[in-house]
């Protein structure tokens, strides 16, 4: 378990490195700090209430992975954090209630896509696996509803791996969570290729 967390922290650090470069490019240098303060392996029951209240509104971007590893990845963040990122990307000054029109939604899906594929590239580099992401899906809804839809899509009913990522952009703190959901027994493929059998 400890080695699994170490591996995930390493994955988080590399993933965040990729994401910083990619996001800084599209945000024209506005995004200046990203860090991974926390890696958690949560029980299914704990996962849904981890970010906050179950009826708090969150934004979730979800991607299906195929190739040498099957699974799902998601980027889930409080709706206020999502609004900050969309404002940075689009230059909009709309309020959180108004910002998620078609343009706002597609900007957010793209940010989520970049975040997730940055981690996917890190995972690919560490394992030499070929990993293909699907197109991103976006939902802005109650935290409980978004979480369970991500978990159910991956048919996860035991453990959930969560890498928290904090951003600080233009002096505004933004919180996000990367969720890695390999399908059953797929994590063993990662541990095998890395020689961490007992993980």
């Amino acid at each position: 378990m400890e080695r699994k967390v170490d591996f995930l922290r390493e994955l988080g650090t590399i993933g965040v490195g990729h994401a910083t470069i990619a996001l800084s490019e599209i945000l024209q240098g506005k995004l200046f700090r990203l860090e991974v303060p926390d890696v958690r392996i949560l029980r299914f029951e704990e996962a849904a209430s981890f970010i906050g209240g179950l009826d708090q509104v969150v934004a979730g971007v979800s991607i299906q992975i195929s190739g040498d590893l099957s699974g799902h990845m998601a980027f889930i963040l409080p709706v206020e954090s999502a609004a900050v990122l969309v404002r940075l990307l689009t230059g909009s000054e709309d309020s959180t209630d108004e910002i998620f029109d078609e343009l706002g939604r597609s900007a957010l899906a793209e940010i989520g896509n970049i975040m997730i594929t940055s981690y996917l590239n890190a995972l690919s580099a560490l394992t030499n696996f070929v990993l293909r992401p699907s197109i991103p899906g976006l939902a802005i809804d109650m935290a409980g509803a978004v979480w369970q839809s991500v978990l159910a899509g991956a048919l996860i009913d035991d453990e959930v791996t969560l890498i928290r990522t904090d951003f600080s952009a233009e002096g505004i703190a933004v919180e996000g969570n990367i969720i890695l959901l390999p399908e059953e027994d797929e994590f063993k493929k990662i541990t095998r290729v890395l020689g961490l059998e007992e993980m």
């Binding site: 991607i63 299906q64 799902h72 699907s134 939902a139 159910a152 899509g153």
Partner: peptide, 13 residues
Amino acid sequence: LFTNLSGPNGNIG
């Protein structure tokens, strides 16, 4: 919620 997720696990709802 996620209409992009297709396949056998697609529409769990």
